[in-house]
């Protein structure tokens, strides 16, 4: 079960993250640090008319956190603020399509938390 946590698509996202990088100008940003494992995530986005026009992340973390950041940023791009705020933990976890052990939940949920915080949720 554990090895299935490190399936090809997760490792691919870890090695080739989507939406990774900086935004020169942005309207919303947040930086979160998961002290227990050292996952470090900065999310920057441009919101226009309550819609996320652009979103990028930088940071360092474990494979699960980085994969989740890629998937979450892709998901919310183009979405309305109030729709994004409705995304719950289960939905965020399900994006990874792998079983997540309790010890690793925090890693997976950090991007969602950061996105919510950045848009003021």
């Amino acid at each position: 079960m554990i090895e299935s946590m490190y399936r090809e698509h997760i490792l691919d996202l870890y090695k080739n993250p989507r939406n990774y990088g900086n935004l020169e100008s942005f309207t919303n940003a947040t930086h979160l640090y998961n002290a227990s494992c050292g996952d470090d995530l900065t999310i920057r986005m441009i919101i226009e008319n309550d819609i996320v026009k652009e979103i990028k992340f930088t940071g360092k973390g474990c494979a699960l956190c980085m994969a989740s950041a890629s998937l979450m940023t892709s998901k919310v791009k183009g979405m309305k603020k109030n729709e994004i705020l409705k995304i719950n933990s289960e939905e965020s976890i399900s994006l990874l399509k792998i079983p997540i052990s309790p010890a690793r939940m925090k890693c997976v949920l950090l991007p969602l938390e950061a996105i919510h915080k950045a848009i003021g949720g």
Partner: peptide, 10 residues
């Protein structure tokens, strides 16, 4: 290239 938590989980 591998986070220590990934090492521990595997």
């Amino acid at each position: 290239g591998i986070h220590s938590h990934d090492i521990a989980t595997i």
